Simulated scan of single mutants.
Amino acid sequence: METLNFPHETQVFKSAAVSRLLLLALIVLWRALLSPYDTSAPLNPNCLVDPHQQQHSPNSSIGSRIESSIVWDSVYFVRIAQCGYEYEQSYAFLPLLPAFTHLLSRSVLAPLIGVIGYRAVLGLAGYIVSNVAFLFAAVYFYRLSVMILKDPDAALCASLLFCFNPASIFYTSIYSESLYALFSVGGLYYLMSGALNISVLWLAISGCARSNGVLNAGYFCFQTMHQAYDALFLKKRHFLAMWILVCGALRCICIFAPFISFQVYGYFNMCLGRSPDEMRPWCKAKVPLLYNFIQSHYCFFQCQGSGFLEVLPIQTVAKLSSCVTNVNPGTLLYYPLCEVTARACLLLRFSSFQ
């Protein structure tokens, strides 16, 4: 593959840093001006496994402010980093972000525990992990854009839009989006560069951040089918085609492995050693998938089904339409399918490199 130059890489990194600082400043400003809605921030009971492990915050205004900023899903991520997986619904949050948060809080940031409290340190660690991951995700996004677009200036514009997009708040909060973006985009960059083993590793790690990381196996499925067809029908080399299929299958299995391992871990924790009466319904299923059960059972709309590609039932759509003016049902279909559509477009573009 031809050597590519990335002339705007430093500018992208600086722009990503500025965007994070701007968002953090806006968060502080709006929280100072307005009282937030009920965000579950005060929920902080003792750990179930070891209640004495709970380390309450000293009388520190900084620690209190950091803890009050741990809201919504961040509460779960910080709780998992502090106490592990205690409740069934906590398994909806995969372990990569809590693992990095726990590691950072117990190493570099450990001296701050006695100053601002352990939970505040966990929150600070979560913010650092998410924002640093975003900086490198932006760099890999720029590199990947240069490879695909063959135009550094267009890649720069795309990267700036990535840094300053309406959903950018999720990349600054203690959410898994930044880590997922880093390892997904980075994995695609290495895939396009020809570093297949590194790509498999990065894409597999993305599956430890978010469940849709398993979709990244689709890139290797496409590549495998493309190369196997070429070997079988154009080159007439049957053994080579078989070898390509075996290697492709192994790479896909590696990408699926983290998510499957997490499901097995949940099954051992929640199902084994319990009587049939104590078992949850998903434990008794032929294929006990904890994640699917959580998505369906704890879904806000009580959706029928649990797949991330499924749309809302028609009854729910009707209820929403009666409550919201000018609801466009097409938008309810758009969001679940947008990621798959984007991946399909990238696969088509990827085929031109083969």
Rank of each mutant, 00 (worst) to 15 (best):
D153E: 15
W72G: 07
A99S: 02
S306H: 11
R143F: 12
A158K: 06
S64D: 12
T316L: 04
Q315I: 05
S130I: 01
I80V: 07
Q304Y: 10
R280F: 14
E278F: 03
V71S: 09
L103D: 11
A228F: 02
R343N: 11
F301A: 00
K236F: 13
I253S: 02
P51K: 03
Y142P: 04
M1K: 07
A110I: 05
A16L: 04
L182M: 07
P42T: 11
P45F: 10
V18K: 09
N165P: 01
A231M: 05
Y118S: 06
G207T: 02
L29F: 09
S61Q: 10
N44S: 14
C163N: 12
G117C: 01
Y76L: 06
A249H: 09
E2N: 07
S173T: 10
S296G: 06
S168N: 12
S206C: 00
Y180V: 03
N131G: 03
F164H: 15
L34A: 11
F268W: 14
P329I: 01
S176E: 09
L103H: 05
F350G: 00
C271F: 09
S306T: 00
C271L: 04
F136Q: 08
K14Q: 06
E177G: 09
G307E: 14
P98K: 10
I116R: 03
L215R: 02
L201V: 00
F259C: 08
V317N: 11
R210T: 09
Y190D: 07
E9I: 13
I244M: 05
S184R: 08
V12C: 00
F93P: 10
L124E: 06
Y219T: 04
W282I: 02
L156M: 09
L109Q: 03
S159F: 13
N212W: 11
S168T: 03
P45C: 12
A125Y: 10
A133R: 05
L348W: 03
F183N: 03
Y37E: 05
S352I: 02
W30N: 13
F134Y: 13
A137S: 06
S64Y: 04
F300A: 01
L245P: 11
F136Y: 15
K235D: 07
N212I: 01
K14I: 08
V317R: 12
L289D: 12
V287W: 14
N165A: 01
